[in-house]
Design a protein around this nucleic acid. Structure first.
Lengths: 117, 117
DNA sequence: ACAGATGTGCAACTGATGGTTGCGCGTTGG
DNA sequence: CCAACGCGCAACCATCAGTTGCACATCTGT
C-alpha cells in the first residue's frame, strides 16, 4: 500500500528554491521577499510567488509590519512535512529491504537445487 | 548550512505520479508504460514521459523484450534518493529542535527576571 | 513637510513541463 | 496472414516558475 501523502505539502517542499527559502528562514528566524531574494539567484517577484505557495499550504506565516512583510516558518506544519518525508522514505526503505531478502531467499533456493541448474 | 541535495533526483521523486509509479513498480517487481497507465489516472503517453524522466536520473532501468519494454526500479539509486529525503528531513528536524530549545531558554530567562516585566 | 529611497503588489510575457489526442510502425498470436 | 497489442512521435493545451516593467505605500533625512 502506498503511503498517504499530502500532495500539496509535498510539492511545496519539492521545489529546490522553496527548500532553500525554508533553510534561510529557519537559519535567520524570519525574512522578507526582498531579503530572501538577495541571498538566492532569483528575483524578488519569484520569491514572492513562492512565499505565496508556502503560505497557502501553511508552511510559513506572514506578519505585515509597516511597509514590509516578514515571514516566519510555521514549525508545526514543517514538522508535518518532515514526518511525511521520513514516512515515504522509510516505506521505500522497507520495500527495498524486503526485495533484497526475497532475492537472497531465491538465491538460496537455487543453491539448494545445485549450482548447475 | 543547507543539506547537499541532487535537485534532479529530488524533483524526480517530487512528482506525485512518479512516486506512485515507483510504488507500483516496487510492489509488482516490474511493469510497462501500458500496465502502469491502467492502474493510474493518466494516459500511457504521460506515463511514458515520466518513465523517461525516471530513466534519465537512473531510478528505473528498461529492458526491451519483443514488443514491450519492461521497467524495473534501480534499487541502489532509489536508496540514494531515500537517503536524501531522510537527510533533508533530519536537518530540518534538528533545526526545529534547536529553535524550540532556544525559545525555552529565552522563556527561562524571562522567568528568572520575574514574570512581571 | 517633502523628496527620494525602500518595500510590495499587480500585470504581461517567456520557457519548461505535465497532460491530452491522434497517428504510424513494429511485434505477436490465433 | 492479419488483427490486436504495445510503443514512439508530433501537435496541442494548461499550469507554473521565472522575468521585466510599473504603480502604490511607507519610511527617513534635511
Amino acid at each position: 500500500m502506498s503511503v498517504a501523502v499530502d500532495d500539496d505539502l509535498w510539492s511545496a517542499v519539492g521545489d529546490p528554491t522553496r527548500r532553500r527559502m525554508l533553510d534561510l528562514l529557519l537559519a535567520d528566524g524570519d525574512g522578507t521577499a526582498t531579503s530572501l531574494s538577495e541571498r538566492l539567484p532569483v528575483t524578488r517577484q519569484a520569491i514572492a510567488k513562492h512565499l505565496g505557495v508556502l503560505d497557502r499550504v501553511g508552511l510559513v506565516r506572514a506578519t505585515p509590519t509597516g511597509r514590509e512583510k516578514r515571514y516566519r516558518v510555521d514549525e508545526a506544519q514543517l514538522a508535518r512535512a518532515v514526518a511525511q518525508l521520513s514516512s515515504v522514505g522509510s516505506a521505500w526503505d522497507a520495500r527495498l529491504r524486503r526485495i533484497k531478502r526475497i532475492a537472497e531467499a531465491i538465491q538460496r533456493g537455487k543453491d539448494e537445487r545445485g549450482p548447475q541448474r
